[in-house]
Every structure is written in structure tokens, then in C-alpha cells.
Design a protein around this nucleic acid. Sequence first.
RNA 1: CGGGGUAUAGCGCAGUCUGGUAGCGCAUCUGGUUUGGGACCAGAGGGUCGUGGGUUCAAAUCCUACUGCCCCGACCA
Length: 455
Amino acid sequence: MISFPAFESLTRCHKMRLSRYFLPILRDTPKDAEIVSHRLMLRAGLVRQQSAGIYAWLPLGLRVLSKINAIIRQEQDRSGAIELLMPTMQSADLWRESGRYDAYGKEMLRIKDRHDRDMLFGPTNEEMVTDIFRSYVRSYKDLPLNLYHIQWKFRDEIRPRFGTMRSREFLMKDAYSFDVDEAGARHAYNRMFVAYLRTFARLGLTSIPMRAETGPIGGDLSHEFIILASTGESEVYCDKSVLDLAVPGPDTDFNNVEELQTIVSNWTKPYAATSEMHDEAAYASVPEDRKVAARGIEVGHIFYFGTKYSEPFGAKVTGPDGVDRPVHMGSYGIGPSRLVAALIEAFHDDQGIAWPVEIAPFHVGLINLKVGDEATDAACETVYRALEARNIDVLYDDTDARAGGKFATADLIGLPWQIIVGPKSLADGKVEVKRRADGERHVVTIEEAVLLVAG
RNA sequence: CGGGGUAUAGCGCAGUCUGGUAGCGCAUCUGGUUUGGGACCAGAGGGUCGUGGGUUCAAAUCCUACUGCCCCGACCA
């Protein structure tokens, strides 16, 4: 099977000249944007609003989204999930089978095709994936199975707001697990739990799993993954000790039931709940100096729902005893388009965005302070080619703008490293390297600069 | 869905009360002077004033209907 990271590395362009790029920077803040991530996404040319809660992803924003998706894919694949791609448009008949065509209400965007058939823009895919499953899978030997896709969803929110944080059209990674019994489903749940911890950590985020509403099934198998941010929509309460837990490493054995259960148990032991699930009595027993009451952004949600869909859909497998049983299912969602906004909430300062290295749209911004000058042009070309040779993503500012404007743009779009080439340092054969996150600068030779940013 | 706003050049706004044929800043283009943290001078281009209907000699401006967008509340990756 061709893995997506390999596919993406074939198509990704590693270098770009700003003079030839499409990067519409806004100097002024559009008045609609209330929260900092929304402002910066518009100003840095990541997205453009096309309608209420509907956004076009501009080239720089798409690069970030793609990098997030690549990390999500790697961790989903590592945990044993398998990617497919289901359509955005779905037939209403499928949703009538589960009873959700009526139950979903106005949040579902309903459409009629030319033959007057009832269609809808999918807000989620439980029905469709269950239909796919029941069409092909007959035996317990084919389980466990976890199918996921990354696809656009539409939920006709009453009031979309906060840019891509709460949009109507949004990208979602949704995974669906199928197991022969509840014990198997619990292990499937734990696999996703660990995959999520790893995914958010790789994105540079500290995520906290919190008990969430379980719906009709009950039990303890639903968690929201929350990152702390003052602009978050959720009120959260937790025991600070959860922040010190070690994230499971890449060598985690996802087939080892005990190992995963131990990890999940450790992570769910400290108190952590959103306001809906908050238990004052339990919170009161958390030592005073470890209490955290804050706001958070929900970036992931996992839950087990047993046979809620498999039963009405007749999604059964034949067990070793020859008896057919409906499969036990769970679903697991991450919102990449929301994550872009959440990441900016977590990584910005007064000058603009400061992307974590893993998901920065480019790794390096190469700034030519005197375009047209033979020496600076030549030095920049040398750096540009050296970075290209090492497959380091570079955005080369070869425009003839003034120094101040270039610095402002570079800080705004927030690439992790800036290599600044100007006559001043070049007089000594040096260039300047600036780390965006903390502003630390080094005046070094070109060779040293390339090594420095290469890490 | 209820409440409150708003709609004039790519962005931010003035002009509306008191009707007379559209302006400012930024951005863009041209020329010049500049050039290490968002320069300066001179010139230029760009607008069915959200849409439809109405009043009037005349509508961005008054009346009316509609629509888009934003904000505040209850639901959600």
C-alpha cells in the first residue's frame, strides 16, 4: 500500500520564491475577526471567508492543513487504522435507516438532486461506513477493523464564529472501529486514545483527555481531547498532574491490550472534566495547588457506541460459534481545520504567528534585504540551493520591498527560522539566523546557517 | 431561532440627519529620491454606493421589501 506521507512528499513543493507565490498579506485587520487566530489567519493569507462559516484555503493555509493531515495519517496508520475516502454527498435513505434523517434537525444541510431525490451534505459518516462494512464483512476473522477518512463535513451551525474554529464547512478526520464484542471495542478505543495523545503531542500541543457525555450507551468510553487556551469555548477543570504525564512513544505496541489499557488508565486517573461533566465533589478532593480551572478548545472526540448503528443496519459478523452478532462500533474525530486555528491560539505573539516546526508551512524564510545587489543576490541563491539540496522547505523573499516590510511579513507568517541576508553582515561573509519562537539571533557563515536551521 | 447592528474602491472608513450626480487613509500602477524593523515626493487607475420597487426635475442620502455579513444568547469536530 502506498502511504500518504510518501504520496505527499512527491507532490509537495519544497521551495518557493515569494515574488512568484500567492500570499495575500493584509496589513490591516479585517473588522469581522474577533479572536487572535481568526485575525492572524486572515492577515497572514491562510484563508479567505467565502460565506458565513465557509472558507477558501489559500496556498499557505493549505500547506499547514496538509502537514497536520500528514501527521494525523501517520498516527492513524501506526495505530492500525486504514484510510479510505467517502463522499461528501450522501443519500437521505441511508440516514432514514438509522432514524437520524429526522433526528438530526436543521444542522443537516438537505439538498434535492435533479430527480428530486433527497440528498444531504454529510455532517458525519457512521451510516455510510456501516453500510460499506455490512456490504463486505461477514466473519469475525476480518475483525478488528478501523476505517478512517479525512473529508469535508458540513453542519449548518446556527451561528458560525471564530473563523475556522467554528465553521459550517470543516475538515474532519473521522475513524470508525468494528469489533466482535465490547472488550474488542474497548481495545479499539484505547488504540485511538493513544493515537490521539501522540498526534496532538507531535503537533506541539498539550492535550488533556476529559470525560465526556456518552449518550444512550453510557459507560466511561467517551473522551474529549482539550487543549488549554484562554479563547477556548469550553470551561474545563483538571488536576495539574495530567499535564506532567509522558506521551506514549512511537514504539508503543498497539496490539498489546494490557500496555494500552495501562496507558489509558494512567491518563484518565487524574481529575479532568469539561463543565458539562464537572463534578464539584470530585474536584474538591484535588489538592489546592494542583487545581486548574481554565478554558479549552476541543480538538478531538472519541466514543464507543456499541451496536447503535450495526443493529438497525444489520452489520453482523458470524462468530466462531456460527452465530451472527451485530458488531460493536466506536467513532473518533479530529478537526484539522479547527486545529489550524487552535495552533495559532497556542503559538502567536504581538508580531504574528510562530508555528511549531512540525507543521510550519515552510521551515525557513530566506530574506534578501537588498534585491538587485550582486553580493546579496548571490548569497541568497547559495542558501536557497543549499536548503533545497537538504529538502528543507524554504520561502525566499526575493521581492524588492523594504527591509521593515519584509521583517514584518516574515514575523507575521511565522516560519520557524529566518535567514536574513543583507550587506551589513555579508561584509564579513556572514548571514543572520533568527529563530521566530524566541527571537534569538546568530550571525554565522552560510554553511553554519544551513546547519543551524537543519537542526 | 430570538435580540442588536451593519452594508459606500482590495482593506479600514467619512458622506445619509438637511436630496444636487462620491471622498479620505492604506493598498495598487508609473516616475524619481530612498533602502537593516511597515519611507518620501509627484502623478495615475479603480466604485451598478448590497438587491428590487417607490417618491422626486434630481436619490448613497427619503419610503418600502428582500438579501448578505457581524455581534449577544440556547446546540456542536
